[in-house]
């Protein structure tokens, strides 16, 4: 009897310690802006890959060294813009919440987000140069989802469900491989915007 009560106490203590030390100043606006950049990027990538083809049918990607360079450039610029906007809005929110931007919570968050993300990034670059272009869009979704789930322990719990949806989209995209860019459009663009709006409403800016 007594023992159970103390076991429960210990569980509560651990739970509260964890929950109170999460990074909660994640801004919904950074999700929305990342989503918008992703939509633009997906559109530009679409234009680059599928020139002179019918819209929304099963298509063959036409790839040359030149288009790969363009794609990488689009990806890099999108990444820089998204991270930049993310840092900008999160700094603003952290200042408003009087939370430190760079503390143990945000450090743990970033490290745990980065491990699956960088793994996936390197894998996709290798695949891209080996010519397996079709796998890149699905795999970026899968690894991004895994990264989110890994990081969700250190931030708002909604991130976990976003991660699960991204993984599901990635797996679906692996099956319907010709529509990779459309899944990418939904996963990185539309989902980010929806989640951004939800977070914005729930936690403010």
């Amino acid at each position: 009897m007594e023992k159970q009560k103390y076991l429960d106490d210990l569980k509560d203590i651990k739970d509260i310690m964890e929950r109170s030390s999460r990074f909660i100043s994640l801004s919904g606006l950074s999700g929305i802006s990342a989503g918008i950049f992703a939509l633009i990027a997906a559109y530009l990538a679409y234009k680059t890959i599928y020139t002179n083809q019918d819209y929304l049918t099963y298509q063959r990607a036409i790839l040359t060294t030149e288009t790969i360079t363009t794609l990488l450039l689009i990806a890099l610029i999108t990444l820089i813009f998204s991270i930049g906007a993310g840092i900008f809005f999160t700094t603003k929110k952290a200042r408003k919440d009087k939370q430190k931007l760079w503390d143990n919570q945000s450090r743990r968050l970033l490290i745990n987000l980065s491990i699956p993300l960088i793994t996936g990034g390197i894998l996709c670059l290798i695949l891209l140069f080996k010519g397996y272009i079709g796998l890149v869009a699905p795999l970026t979704l899968v690894f991004y989802g895994l990264a989110l789930i890994n990081a969700s322990k250190y931030t708002l719990s909604e991130i976990r469900s976003l991660g699960l949806i991204e993984i599901s989209l990635g797996l679906l995209a692996t099956h319907f491989i010709g529509f990779g860019l459309i899944f990418w459009f939904v996963g990185f663009g539309i989902l980010h915007i929806i989640y951004g709006i939800v977070m914005q409403r729930r936690y403010g800016s």
Partner: peptide, 22 residues
């Protein structure tokens, strides 16, 4: 017990966050 758990792992916690947490 909850209040102390939150306070020992953080520099400080404000009233509203404690309320939310507990």
């Amino acid at each position: 017990l909850g209040i102390m758990s939150a306070l020992v792992v953080n520099d400080y916690v404000d009233f509203n966050n404690l309320k939310l947490l507990l």
